[in-house]
Structure formats: C-alpha cells, structure tokens
Amino acid sequence: MLSASNIQFRTKKRTILDATDLTVHPGEIMAILGPNGAGKTTLFKLLSGDSNASLGVVKYNGRNIAGLTASQLAAVRAVMPQHSTVNFPFTVREVVELGLISNKVKDPEKVLDEVMALAQIDHLQGQHYDQLSGGEKQRVQLSRVLVQIWEMKPFPRYALLDEPTSSLDIAQQHAMLEVLTQLKRRNIGVLVILHDLNLAAQYADKILLLKAGKMCYCGPIKAGLNECLLETVFDHPIQLMHCVGTDQLIVHCSNKSKMYPSTRLVQ
C-alpha cells in the first residue's frame, strides 16, 4: 500500500500543499485531478521521493520513504515525469533498457520485448530517440518506466505518472490507460495525474481532487463524480451525463454563457 498521511509542503512564503491524505492499494488506479497550480505536481514529487514533505509521512508498503535508498525505492515504484529530454543519440531500445539499471531481472530481453510490444513501440526500437514524435517519445518513456516494475514480485509495486497522455491522440490516450489497467493484474497500484475528466471517469477506481493546495475529495470515483464538487474544484460549469446504451458517465464542460439545463441526468 502506498500511503500518505497529513503531508504538507511549504516554502518560506506560502503553503503549496496542505494536509493531504491518500492511500493507493495494489490493483487500483487513482487519478489526481485539479486546475492548474492546484499542487498536483508538488504532491507527485512528495510521493515519488523527489522532494521531502515539510510535515507528514509517505509510506511504501509500510516503510517510511525517508528511510529508503534510491535503489530500494526504485524496486517498489517507477515514475514517469512530465518531460524527459535526451541530449545524446540513444536508440529507443537503449532508453527503455535504462529502466532496468538498478533492478536485476532474470530475463531482461523478455521483459523489454513484452513491454515494448504492449506500448506498441517494438517497431521503433532501432531508431534514435530524438527523432521520434512527441507521442512516440511518451510511449518510449512509458516503456522505460514499466520495465522497472514489470517482473512479478512477491510485494506490491506502484507506478506514478505525471500527465502521461499530454502528447497523445485520442486512440493513444485510451491505449495508454488500457496499459495502466493491465498493470492492476500484476499487483501494481497506479497513481496518475490527468487533465481529462472523461478519461478519469472511464478508467480510474479512485480520484483525488485538489484545489489551491487543498484536498477537496479523495475516494471512490463514483462519489467523486459529483457536479457540485467538480464545479467548485474547477470553477467552471460541469454537467454529467450517461452515455446512451452504456452505463458510462460523460463529463460535459459547458461554456460559461451557454448552459444545457435539459441534459442533467445525474443527481
């Protein structure tokens, strides 16, 4: 279990993140949502071990993150930051292989092949990373992150991803989240920052809503998808609808001047 209890992050001048609690169990996907500047990336950095909380504790499988070395941490969690640049002519396969740098695996070639097939980049493996398109780069980074925790282990692992869908087209966004869904079966818990409420509604098990450094909601997706709550978090009119024929929820963000009152179906 990945847990954070009452974590805060302060600079000298202001509090960027205030009293946040969360738990991610292996086998579930938690989406972090909130407007720009809400503190999503700060929370992400505290959870990944990149910066230390001013107050509160982050624990991986019951062990305090402050007591873990970089390589111990790398064995239980993999992290995909927003932008990664590579300044030297590495090939795609070399970049993905870097994910294995601190973890010994029995059959590295098999792990690499499986993950690259899953992320649909196996046809790119001989190419240079810096010649890829934005979407391809993102899938290569995803593969690098996944190989780090791909091999089955007796303990739960976690994947932390910061806006992994930002450069992807619609089909690839769904492919990305399908991949994350598959991780559930490998005893992996997923924590992902998303911008698209619809993607969260469709794939997440839990959501955490942040606004101005404060946690507004953390819990099951069903209760979190509440028009009032979402409207206060995003300061924007939001409507929820059921998709015709399926039980799926659609989040509609209407223009502030034009509302569609007749389509309110939920709550």
Binding site: A70, N87, L98
Partner: peptide
C-alpha cells in the same frame, strides 16, 4: 558508465530509476 547513461535522461529520472545521483 551505466549511471551516466541514466543521467542522460535527467538527474531526476536517474534518481527515479534507482541511481544514487
């Protein structure tokens, strides 16, 4: 050399991958 390869992605990324940066 291996750690230097990881640092080519960025110091943060190298840390995430388990390198004592």
């Amino acid at each position: 050399a291996k750690n230097l390869n990881a640092m080519a992605l960025g110091e943060k990324e190298a840390f995430y991958m388990g390198v004592n940066v």
